[in-house]
């Protein structure tokens, strides 16, 4: 009897915490979605259901342009950061002789703990000085934002690759050599394909980091390089914006679709 009560208690506690926890996580997002259908310029006063703000959103050239810029910068930044991050991860695990190794470790890990505001400030000052000294970069813009995003994403990719490689069985590379693979082909034929899932998650993380970044981009941006967060921030800094509500719903929809696909692909993989 006592056991049953104890068990009931446990189940109750579990559902209590999970319900409260997930409600907390989803309540704000759902609020945004509900109000995105409000047919009123004053965001919080309900007037009726409509898709009006979605229409406005797709006609808002500023937001659309910023979205395209953000996607472009994020995919480029993720690609370069993944390349560099894989190199760092590989170097740290596999190459014993790195000149000033502790310094290399410091460089590749401290962006993780550096507040983005300091990172943004230092990069901006650097771009200004380097422009004074050698005329490069000629002006602030997409290039400077891209460089900055690569710089802070690299560390995150490197951590993922490093932890994957340190749990990686070196025997399979020896096996490949034993079966006749030349040493210069081992990385591309064996190592890279085996750690490919980690490379992909590194890329996705770098992509999100870039897409999500406001602070560093605000410091290093220039004409023609207003990313989506910069535009959104300028819209919501002082008040509310119905178009931003619609944008939130769109992003949410996109993420949920991606998550559902991921869930089912993953599940069918596991079931096999």
């Amino acid at each position: 009897m006592q056991n049953i009560i104890l068990k009931m208690n446990k189940i109750f506690l579990k559902s209590f915490f999970l319900t409260i926890g997930f409600a907390f996580l989803y309540f704000p997002i759902l609020t945004l979605i509900v109000y995105s259908f409000n047919d009123n310029k004053r965001v919080m006063v309900w007037k009726g259901f409509s898709f009006r703000w979605y229409g406005e959103l797709f006609r808002n050239e500023q937001i659309l342009e910023a979205f395209m810029i953000s996607i472009k910068i994020a995919s480029l930044s993720a690609t370069f950061a993944t390349l560099l991050g894989v190199m760092i991860g590989y170097s740290l695990v596999r190459i014993p002789k790195i000149p000033a190794r502790p310094f290399f470790i410091f460089l590749s890990s401290s962006p993780l703990v550096m507040p983005e505001i300091i990172l943004g400030l230092s990069l901006l000052l650097f771009f200004i000085s380097s422009n004074h000294l050698i005329g490069f970069p000629s002006s602030k813009g997409q290039l400077t934002v891209l460089i900055s995003h690569i710089t802070f994403s690299v560390a995150f990719v490197a951590v993922i690759i490093q932890s994957r490689l340190s749990s990686y069985d070196k025997n399979i590379e020896e096996a490949a050599q034993d079966l006749g693979t030349l040493p210069n082909k081992i990385f591309w034929k064996i190592t890279a394909p085996v750690i490919l899932p980690s490379i992909i998650s590194g890329w996705l993380l770098a992509f999100t980091l870039s897409l999500d970044d406001l602070v560093v981009a605000s410091f290093t941006t220039g004409p023609g390089a207003n990313t989506l967060p910069i535009v959104v921030f300028s819209k919501v800094r002082l008040g509310l914006s119905p178009e931003v509500n619609a944008l939130s719903s769109m992003i949410m929809l996109f993420v949920v679709i991606a998550a559902v696909i991921f869930y089912f692909v993953n599940r069918s993989n596991v079931q096999k």
Binding site: D169, N171, I172, D178, L182, L196
Partner: peptide, 20 residues
């Protein structure tokens, strides 16, 4: 002779099969 040129093969304890 490097391993990839030796006319012999090795089977590893953990098999070292290519997971991909």
């Amino acid at each position: 002779l490097p391993p990839y040129l030796r006319p012999l093969n090795i089977m590893f304890q953990n098999y070292a099969l290519f997971p991909h």
